[in-house]
Simulated assay, not measured.
Amino acid sequence: MWVVVALLAVVVLGLVGYIWLWPQIVNDDSAAGPSTSTSTVVVPAPGAGPAPAQGGGPAPAESVPSYSTPCASVFGSSSFGTSAVGSTVTSCEFAEEVRAAYLRQGVRNGTVSIDAYSPVTGRTYTMTCSGSAVVTCTGGNDAVVYLY
């Protein structure tokens, strides 16, 4: 009887571990090689002026652009407590993941590259972030995120 109970416990623990670890194993893009585009296309809002030079992405903003959509903060932070999306292909869930990844790395007022997981697509994307009062992060599949 005890052997059956122990065997069932091992099977249940194995299934729980497999279910918990499987998404992390599947989302390991480093083993699969590059699979996402990192080009950036910026479409300014009507009346926002000329588009930035091709390939450079949006310049770091001193204030959050009026066409951006603020996101609800899912965690508190004394600096960069809010995120906003700056393109229609960017979700607030991803913007908050970008904010978390940016805050985990220590560089401020410079250009950094971070990896952020998208709960919407289930993939990890590389974003390039720069700025000081407002940090502009671009990358992934045409994603634009503002942190402030």
Rank of each mutant, 00 (worst) to 15 (best):
T90R: 14
Q54A: 13
G49K: 11
T40L: 12
G56F: 15
G56L: 15
V64A: 03
V41H: 08
T111V: 07
V10A: 11
W20M: 09
Y117V: 01
W2P: 00
N141F: 15
L13Q: 06
W20C: 03
A133W: 07
A101V: 04
Y117R: 07
S118P: 07
V42M: 11
T82L: 10
G86H: 08
G14P: 06
V89L: 14
G55D: 14
A72Q: 10
T88A: 11
Y148R: 02
S39A: 06
G86D: 11
G110S: 14
Q24A: 11
G57I: 09
V12Q: 02
G139R: 12
T38M: 10
S78Q: 10
P52N: 12
V41G: 01
V98Y: 04
Y148S: 14
G57Q: 09
G122R: 03
S39V: 09
G55C: 11
W22P: 01
I25M: 14
T136N: 12
A72F: 05
F75E: 13
A53N: 09
T128Q: 10
A45E: 09
V12P: 00
G49H: 14
S37M: 03
W2N: 04
V16L: 13
T138I: 05
G56S: 14
A95L: 02
P60V: 03
A32E: 15
M1H: 11
Q54N: 06
W20P: 00
V5T: 09
Q105L: 02
A100K: 15
S91P: 05
N141D: 15
V89P: 01
A6D: 06
G106L: 09
V10G: 01
V41R: 11
G17S: 12
V5G: 01
S68W: 04
S130H: 11
P119D: 01
N109W: 06
W20A: 11
G47V: 07
P70I: 13
V26R: 14
S83T: 10
R104W: 08
G47P: 12
V5M: 13
V112L: 05
V134A: 08
P23G: 04
S37N: 08
A45C: 07
D115M: 02
T40N: 11
T88H: 08
V144Q: 10
T69D: 07
W22T: 04
V42A: 09
D28G: 02
T136E: 07
V120T: 09
S30L: 15
E93K: 07
Y117W: 10
G33R: 06
